[in-house]
Design a binder for these strands. Structure first.
Lengths: 348, 348
DNA sequence: ACTAATAATGCGAACGTTCGCACGAACGTT
DNA sequence: AACGTTCGTGCGAACGTTCGCATTATTAGT
């Protein structure tokens, strides 16, 4: 924690003014190749690195991106957090940026305060948002302040900002079509409440696939609730006790936790998952492949999302010209495992 | 992205010099209660917040803590990452600090370069390390440079630095004693390779508990390998095919993934987990409670660890007097579920 | 009323950069 | 030979704070 090498020392050692050293380092000026090499030599000898804070003060940029996310409850881990963060760190580092992470506050007032603080103190140059909701106060604040940000997920259509979202409808279409291809006709859904935009998006894919197959889903096949194990279990029990003609033979879950609950319910009533009742999830939670049977699920291109989000944000932050907001939609992929297959052959 | 309020504007509005405003805000000086209230009024009216960068440049502190961690493979998520990060964010925020997160590089050279960069550019005031290894290059670098840091986990005993670790030995003692209390006598272990300090720590608890019960574990009960599902499965199969007299009736896993693999192996040979063969894990991976049967596991006090790590680090960073390095050991707790109980009653 | 002490405030400098402009030297052009 | 150009480099200022000391206003002590 000792020495600090400054521009002046480099200048002294290479016999030019310190401002010239600065310009050479930033490639803003032509100098004799001789002086240039002297300067670089000195930089190297002294192991000089520009003081980030000073550079930042002068150039009015912090080279820092703020990110905060809603923590998952302890019994329901966020399966993509690690990869999502790492992908952003890597992409940011390539452009000389770092991520500043700050705590998530449930109180909207307090939460907004966090964002304001970071903006007003000029601590970050932009934000990445995730888990945006309809009329998200953060989005409203940042749009109003014209502060750069991008979001993982969409909000109200009339709010214009750059975002990337996973095409959940496409994901559910894949899952539903896969089940239809296995011969299923009565396919039920474990869904989220109606207020959930993400949930509604995903369900569209289910309806699209069903109707394309000429099937009009029965209203009782749609169960809405909190996306947790307990609800998945309960809903599946109810679905399995429907009368013979309407009892589903397959269940699509909007997340893995509900699907796992459903698997347990199927097994508890003495039916076999896969061969008799098919189940699919969403998110491809790591341990899902180690269940008995392994869970068919839908995987999001997390790494790519993180990278592109950062690239989009830095274009806004760095870019000379204002960027048109764009909403990118990415395609998830279906990972087929035993929980949705007639043959009990364990894949994976 | 518009206005920026500076000290000077506040000063103008309250009729004092901007330096005085600074001092009042930082409570470094006495002023008339009248001027004081005028100043605070102006601060409030203009919504003034000190520019972080300028403050940082002048005071030579970044109020930022660096943290980087090794990402988990996609099929083996880190169960405590989310809570660990959030706990640190909260603790840091209380003291006006934020966390700067940066990518993890596998190449040691490149990794060290990341730390050097952040130190030399004065971008962070200290680091939190996790996953430290014997002769960890990061530890050696930071000690040599006398740069403030704390670690989650221990390293060589002769390297003196502040750290918090979970008493894995205690955890395994709890698990083993629990199994002994259920009447088990032949208890095998799914362990990590001998080079693993964490693994060796944990195993000590197993041996302690066994010997305290007057049992000398057979060498063949100890299986070492990579801490993954596949190894757990394989090792359990081998253990279950030992001759009658030495075949274990219980398995302790050093993590949940091995335990889950073991559960599958037990079921595949037609035995019942819990009533016939008991299995325990380590980490209390969220989905472990939803397995069939739910997995008994060991839970680390993650939130407390994160908070205390930050407190320790800030004492070093903020403290006027140098702090004595201390190695704190925290006690994990046993979460008993059906996988280790004779009665098939599902707890959880 | 005069000085000494104390309280309240102001002032200049510094932190380490980047930025814009100015300046001299070398160059080619008329 | 005098001129405009370009090239290489230097200089002063600024970014918005904090810090130490100087200065003035106030109070108390004789």
């Amino acid at each position: 924690m000792s020495r600090r090498v400054t521009l002046k020392e480099v200048a002294l050692r290479s016999g030019v003014s310190y401002q010239t050293v600065s310009k050479v380092i930033n490639g803003q000026v032509q100098v004799t190749s001789e002086t240039e090499s002297r300067i670089w030599q000195a930089v190297h000898d002294l192991n000089y690195r520009p003081n980030y804070t000073a550079r930042s003060l002068r150039s009015q940029r912090s080279f820092t991106i703020g990110y905060s996310w809603r923590p998952s409850p302890p019994d329901q881990a966020n399966p993509i957090l690690d990869a999502f963060l790492q992908s952003m760190f890597h992409a940011a580092e390539l452009s000389g940026y770092y991520l500043l992470c700050f705590p998530f506050h449930n109180d909207p007032q307090r939460q907004i305060e966090s964002y304001r603080e970071l903006m007003d103190t000029r601590r970050v140059d932009g934000f990445v948002l995730s888990g945006v909701e309809y009329n998200d106060p953060r989005v409203l604040l940042l749009l109003e302040q014209r502060f750069p940000f991008v979001a993982f997920g969409r909000s109200n259509p009339e709010l214009r900002f750059s975002s990337i979202d996973v095409d959940g409808g496409y994901g559910l279409r894949l899952a539903t079509e896969h089940l239809l291809a296995q011969g299923h006709r009565r396919i039920a859904a474990l869904a989220w409440p109606e207020e959930s935009r993400v949930g509604n998006n995903r369900m569209e894919g289910y309806y699209a696939a069903m109707r394309a197959a000429g099937i009009e889903p029965l209203p009782e096949w749609m169960r809405r609730g909190e996306g947790r194990y307990a609800f998945g279990y309960q809903a599946a029990r109810e679905l399995l006790s429907l009368p013979d003609g309407s009892r589903p033979t397959a269940l699509v879950g909007l997340n893995d936790y509900m699907a796992v609950g459903a698997i347990k319910a199927v097994q508890d009533v003495g039916l076999e998952v896969g061969s008799q009742i098919a189940v699919t999830g969403f998110d491809d939670t790591p341990i899902a492949q180690y269940l008995t049977p392994p869970l068919t699920s839908i995987r999001q291109p997390v790494w790519e999302i993180g990278e592109r989000l950062i690239q989009m944000l830095l274009e806004i932050v760095d870019g000379a010209t204002p960027i048109e907001a764009e909403a990118v939609l990415m395609q998830p992929s279906l990972v087929i495992r035993a929980s949705s297959q007639m043959t009990t052959k364990t894949s994976s």
